[in-house]
Design a protein around this nucleic acid. Structure first.
Lengths: 125, 125, 125, 125
DNA sequence: GTGGTCTAGACCACT
DNA sequence: GTGGTCTAGACCACT
């Protein structure tokens, strides 16, 4: 499910965070699901434990998972925190749209791009 | 027209670039218009000359202005370059939309936010 | 009287301990009262017997109940032990207040919050 | 200004975070002040760079500092985020007060402890 | 010089 | 077995 690009400028821990979010959007991970343990992730992705730990910590801060020492990490979406993040994200969305508009993006293109994100059950393999 | 935030993490030269783009979207600046000279800008914004110079250089690289030594800088949109920037921007747009979708943004909200960017003729002064 | 949150990061046995203390503050349980037997608790709360046993053990260590094999468990507040716990708790209180002060809590708010804890006889059922 | 306890159960990065907050309460650090660089901190405290980096990241997440690669880290209190943290903290405050009340703390003691936190300009040396 | 990332490896407490 | 912390050391991009 996770596939890292070690040549990317995006930090590895961030890629893990991003792909976990995508897995939730696409329904691969749901509320209450157990995440792979940090060590399992280390073996799967062939990265350092610190890197996975950082990704998991980040996910916890974002209100996406809950990590319990001795037990494991679970998907636990903090709806309140996510709602707050959504509000804060508006500003970034506006900035991105200002740039998009400057570059000539039309509403129709925006709609198509948005609709093509995630939910791509048909191209699962 | 320009209003800088010196406490922001966004570099000053970048703020000048961004606000120039916005001025174009909103119609304050049009193809062929003369930009304020670097020195005028320095006096207006109370920033270092090198900062303004860097912003103008950036705007030239982006295909937005053309600076002619001894004459000044003019809005000269390089349509080809901007088309190329538009394509590169697609990736950022997708990333932003992935995050937006994760946070629960619906298409209707996206459309409304996009439509509300720029073109705010009514609040011009 | 007891109501557990199985999704919480707080261990179940700890929730039982906490709610027993609250029952004492609020006067639902008094010195000498008989606690439900471990088995009754298991049936009431639908948790594992070992979890209830651990909670009861904890309560005994804290000087709150006394368990007599073959007879049951009784509220038996060990004043000396509780006084000792009170002293140890000072450190936690200071830490909490440092954070509260950083976040901008004023004395008046602290007083109001403290006064509103427990003794909520009006919302008993 | 910073003094670490390496025998404490509180992680070192957390101690750095806590002491930075205290420095702000006590007025040693103010909005806009430059923090020691990560490497200066490493030399001052004799800990690993990762540990200091983690503390600084944590402070950034908390809306207390802003770190700019190549420039440094500055105190930049995010009033909105801190207000949000204050609201969330209410729950913890209530839990602490329930325990305090159980242990026999009286309002007068609570007030005295709260008033003695920070602002101890008189015992500076 | 600045902060940021990552690895290898060790040790800890708790379940 | 679980997550959490820390060190030593290296390398990166950006100012």
């Amino acid at each position: 499910m996770y596939s890292l690009d070690f040549t990317s400028k995006i930090p590895i821990y961030q890629q893990i965070v991003d792909q976990t979010k995508m897995a939730i959007i696409d329904g691969y991970l749901k509320q209450g699901d157990k995440m792979p343990s940090v060590r399992e992730m280390v073996n799967m992705l062939l990265v350092n434990q610190s890197t996975v730990s950082r990704a998991y910590r980040e996910l916890e801060v974002l209100g996406i998972i809950s990590s319990v020492p001795g037990k494991g990490s679970y998907i636990l979406l903090d709806e309140e925190k996510i709602k707050w993040e959504k509000e804060k994200f508006l500003e970034k969305l506006e900035e991105t749209f200002r740039e998009a508009k400057f570059l000539g993006y039309e509403l129709a293109e925006i709609i198509e791009i948005f609709n093509n994100i995630g939910g791509q059950d048909d191209i699962k393999d």
